[in-house]
Design a protein around this nucleic acid. Structure first.
Lengths: 185, 185
DNA sequence: ACCTTAACGCAATTTATTTGCATTAAGGCG
DNA sequence: CGCCTTAATGCAAATAAATTGCGTTAAGGT
């Protein structure tokens, strides 16, 4: 019987919110490697076993929190032109992900290998933002964006250098990547 | 006095080798998330505290092992032409990193945020390989490779899609990336 | 209002991590 | 080579984290 498989209301939701909030606070207060499940549980007013049962491991919980945090609050800025929208989005993306917190979020999302749900969703956000910019372009009569191309030629290098730390990801570098990356699809 | 800061000989080296070997074996035998420090210690014939004192955490040990494993055994194949060398290297790179083991190695290297040493070294291997191909090119009289460009336009997208799992990294896809990515620097 | 059961809290148990102290063995020096 | 200093290890105790059994609470459908 499939009467009810997952409960989403009331208590369950409150606990998820409390645990997420506690995790976010701790991430801002101390180094990510010093955070433990019991620590989060105490601040959230929950027993550790609840967290272990719902999320499994600290890694999975952190990935869950990271995805929430990476979910953009608003649609990308509308600057009036596709090139402007794209530059605005990419520069903001690079700045957010370059910060110590952003880097940690990326790492946490990627570290979760069990179900690729977290990483896929994280990717989806970026994809959706680019698709939104592309939709605006066509609404203006401009050619649509090559979303996959921007991912490959702009987003991917940015993530690569942030994750591997082999070079600074500056606004100038991002603009260089954008040159020739925003063509029509 | 700087008489001796780090000991590298005899016993120390044997233990490092034994621990690495045990880690590699376990990585091939079971899921990476089920591996524990005591498990590795037992197989390596070492007490857990030794591992904790030398590597700190399981994450750091795994990153250390991953870097060793990612270090290429030989120089890239010499196919006679720069384009051929590049394609050969990139296809092999993509194949290795796409496998479950390769993915796990990449994740482990990236997860180690403490000192960027692991990620930097991992990057360096790729960079050195490309530089070798470029050196061969100039030796043949061909124009040198734009190493940074290949990293940005070919390696980065491959790593991105492997890490985020948002698409298959097929040989055909790699060849598409190579088109227009291997220009002179 | 009632019933079923997913999700939780609590406490006991198991496992992992840390730490103090004794012991071993690099590696420099006479 | 033998001696000396001390980094690195082993062992065991102490601490902390992760797991598990079981009773309780409260979603959510009837």
């Amino acid at each position: 019987m499939s009467r009810e498989m997952v409960r989403q209301g009331g208590r369950s939701a409150r606990i998820q919110k409390a645990v997420h909030e506690a995790s976010r606070q701790l991430l801002d207060e101390m180094d990510r490697t010093r955070i433990t499940v019991p620590m989060i549980a105490e601040r959230a007013g929950v027993t550790p076993s609840t967290i272990y049962r719902r999320w499994g491991t600290l890694t999975e919980l952190m990935a869950d929190v990271a995805v929430e945090r990476l979910r953009p609050a608003a649609a990308p800025e509308d600057t009036g032109s596709t090139a402007g929208d794209l530059e605005s989005f990419v520069l903001q993306y690079a700045e957010e992900m370059s910060s110590p917190v952003g880097r940690a979020l990326l790492r946490d999302v990627i570290a979760e290998a069990q179900d690729d749900d977290a990483t896929i969703r994280c990717c989806q956000y970026t994809h959706d933002h680019l698709a939104e910019i592309s939709a605006r372009a066509t609404a203006r009569g401009e050619p649509p964006l090559d979303v996959a191309g921007v991912l490959d030629r702009t987003i991917a290098p940015i993530c690569y250098h942030i994750l591997f730390g082999d070079r600074e990801v500056t606004p100038d570098y991002c603009r260089t990547l954008l040159t020739g990356a925003g063509g029509p699809g």
